[in-house]
Every structure is written in C-alpha cells, then in structure tokens.
Write a protein that binds this DNA or RNA. Structure first.
Lengths: 165, 165
DNA sequence: TAGACCTGCTTCGAATTCGAAGCAAAGTGA
DNA sequence: TCACTTTGCTTCGAATTCGAAGCAGGTCTA
C-alpha cells in the first residue's frame, strides 16, 4: 500500500495542532478556575453538569463514563468523592439490579450554580473572545459531524471485554 | 454587574461541548494507538515530536513544558522516562547554567518515525474523515487566532511564584 | 432451567500527575 | 559587592488515573 499518506498535509497539521493546543490551554485555565471557585476537578464539574442537565437529575454510571470519556474505575472513584462531599447520591437502579443510578443533590445543584458563572467567564474570555458569532457558528458546524463520527465508529470506552483467541 | 451573561448561548455551548468531546475522544484513541505501536504516552509522543521538529533536535525543559502545557515536575518525570529509554538525552545548557537541554536521540527519531504513520492514520480516520479540504482549512483558520489569544493572555503554566501579600 | 456468556460496577495495584518546597544559578538595585 | 528577587529544574508526598481481575445480576439458547 504505497499510497497511504505518510503524513498530514500542512493545513491538516495546523488544524490538528491548534485543536490539541487550544483544548489543553482551555482545560488548564478552566481547571484552575473550578478548583478555586468550588474545589472541583474538571471531571467532577462535567459530571455535575451532565447530571444537572438531565431531566431526572440522574444517570447511570456507565452512561456518565461514556459521556465524559472516562474509565469506569476512575468514575467509581470520582463519584465516590462527589458522594462523600454530598453533591451526589448513589442508588440502585429500579429495573437493573446491577446498575447504579447517580443523582445530583440540592447541594450539588447549588455548587454547580455557584461555579458556573466563573466557568462561563473563562470559556468566554479564552475560547470565544477572538471569534465572531459567525465564527462560533461555523466552529460548531464543523465539529458536530466530527463528534458524531467519533462517537459512532470505535467509541466505547469499554471495548469488548476480551475476545477469545 | 447585571449584564455579565450568566450562560453561553446555545451555539456557543454546542461549539464548546463539541470541542471538548472531540478532543477527549481523539486523545483517547490516539493514546491507545501510541501505546501499542511504541509504548508511548501521548505526552511522550508530543515531546518527541517537538524535539524531532526542532532544527537542533533539542529544547529547554521549560519550553517543552510550556509547549505541551504540562507541569514542570511532570515534565521532569516524563523526560526521565524517555531518557531511561534512550530516546532522549539531557545536557546542561551552554549559556545558562541552570537550564537543562533535552535532545532527541537517533533511537528517539527511529521510534518517532515508527509510530507516526499509525498516529496519522488515527487522526485522519477520526478527525478528518468527516471534513472536506475546505472544512479543514476553515477549522485551522478558526482555531489559530484562538490559540494565539490563549497563548498571549494568561498563559504561563508557571505563574508568578508567589506574590507577597 | 442449566450453562455460557455478557454487562455494570467495584477493588486492587501500579503508574502518572500536580503543587509545594527546595536548591542553585542569574538578574537587579542600591 | 551584597542582599533580594527571579528563574530553571528536581524532589517529595498526596491525589488521581487506568487496566486487569473479581463479583453479581442479566441474557440467550438449547
């Protein structure tokens, strides 16, 4: 197969590097803000945000892990921390005895609300500052299909457990 | 200050979430590939890539840390691993006695070359697959100013060490 | 309904990560 | 030149992260 490109063209490289760099910097800044505003790590914030957005205020462990692209054991750990802090509650699921349902508490919602404005400010100031409304729109339009593509193809963080040889 | 937006508008939210999600998924996939192709973590790969790109094949520790957005202590650790693996060499800098210069070795270049094709393949297949040439161009054009903005404003991973109260 | 497999979550151990503290070299100002 | 601050890196300890292994509840099929 002599035609598989040995490298990306310069434009692709630029886009790729910029993407990685931008999110690294953004994440770093956001982490800083979350830590001092509410002593939350980025994952914890993501978890609370997802739970807060849910109509029921809850999600299954696995869905949370897949949602934030995190290992299952890591999620167990983080949810444990959140629970210890009273921001979240764990309960056995009704229909599936194995499943654990995580629900955000009032304290969790309160903290989330307290932290959000600062979070928004950081994201606005760093990510959106140099972008016009149209730019933002274009960016969203570009990334949406990429996300869908990535989610569909080889996504699951829990790959088939082991294929027998 | 009643006019600081309490939230991002839906389009911004979509762009922000997509950005985070896309890079998380991409990073995850890339990490997988690098691990099995050359037993490298993503940071290690980034470091080797940066060194390989440099005209001299070397960089100062601090510049590497800032470049890949990594803590200094973390960099010390990772460079230690790379050095132990013979992929990189540490040497005192000529002009500044405190500074340490990291240089990629031939083995490092070899491994980098061995790992790159698979890396490119993953990035192509996941990130660029759903994007046209124009899309990629647009993406690069959008992200470049954002990166520059982030790099300029409050960037340094090593903030002023401590301001006396 | 038994046997085999799959799924959801947790536990465990090892590796990584970061910030704070420390050390030495450089810069700065009087 | 002497203090004081800054900068570059490393060490240290604590917290996080992941994968492998384990356990229990589901599912499927004969």
């Amino acid at each position: 197969m002599p035609d598989s490109p040995p490298s990306l063209d310069p434009v692709q490289l630029g886009a790729y590097f910029a993407l990685v760099e931008v999110t690294s910097l953004l994440r770093h800044a956001v982490e800083q803000q979350l830590k001092e505003a509410g002593d939350l790590s980025y994952v914890q914030f993501q978890l609370l945000a997802r739970l807060g957005d849910s109509p029921t205020g809850s999600h299954r462990m696995t869905d949370l892990a897949d949602g934030v692209v995190y290992s299952r054991s890591g999620l167990t750990y983080q949810v444990g921390l959140l629970e210890k802090a009273g921001l979240v509650e764990r309960s056995p699921s009704a229909d599936d005895e194995r499943s654990v349902t995580v629900t955000i508490t009032d304290a969790g919602r309160t903290l989330l609300a307290a932290v959000l404005p600062g979070h928004v400010e950081v994201v606005s100031g760093l990510l959106f500052e140099p972008l016009s409304r149209d730019d933002v729109h274009a960016l969203a339009e570009l990334l949406a299909p990429v996300r869908d593509h990535m989610r569909s193809a080889p996504p699951r963080s829990a790959a088939p457990r082991r294929r027998k040889s």
